Computed example of a mutant assay.
Amino acid sequence: MSSTPSVGRIVRYVSHGTPLRSDGSQEFPPAHRAAMVTEVDPHDPHRVGLVVYNPTGQHFHPLSAGGSVLDETGKLGGSWHWPERV
């Protein structure tokens, strides 16, 4: 689904998870979270600023800190994608 994001749109954010342990496991693996677009890069509409809604609170991921880039596969930590249709 290729569409241009705009402020206020709901997207899915993929968290990074915790660093890998020496055995390759993670305490918290990457997870998909609800997010809302707060700003769109005027030079790259696939890079956005987000507010991410976690079970324990909100996380702000602004453009000034690098923002979040589109990953349509939904696998890259720190990326966003459109919600899956169910």
Rank of each mutant, 00 (worst) to 15 (best):
S3M: 14
S3L: 04
S3K: 15
T4I: 06
S6R: 15
G8M: 02
R9G: 00
R9S: 05
R9E: 08
I10Y: 04
V11N: 01
R12Y: 09
Y13I: 01
Y13R: 07
V14S: 05
V14G: 02
H16Y: 11
T18I: 06
T18W: 04
P19V: 02
R21V: 12
R21K: 14
S22L: 10
S22P: 03
S22F: 07
D23F: 15
D23R: 09
G24L: 06
G24W: 03
S25G: 07
Q26M: 12
E27A: 12
P29Y: 00
P30R: 03
H32P: 04
R33T: 06
A35K: 02
V37R: 04
T38N: 01
T38I: 11
E39W: 00
H43T: 11
H43R: 10
H43I: 03
D44M: 10
D44R: 08
D44S: 12
P45S: 03
H46P: 06
R47C: 02
G49D: 00
L50M: 11
L50G: 09
V51N: 04
V51K: 01
V52T: 13
N54A: 14
N54K: 11
N54Q: 11
N54V: 10
G57R: 15
G57M: 11
G57W: 07
G57D: 10
Q58W: 07
F60G: 01
H61D: 14
H61E: 13
S64Q: 13
S64M: 07
S64N: 08
G66S: 05
G66M: 03
S68G: 09
S68V: 02
S68W: 02
V69A: 09
L70M: 09
E72N: 09
T73Q: 09
G74K: 00
G74M: 02
G74Y: 00
S79W: 05
W82H: 09
W82V: 05
W82P: 05
W82E: 08
P83L: 03
E84W: 09
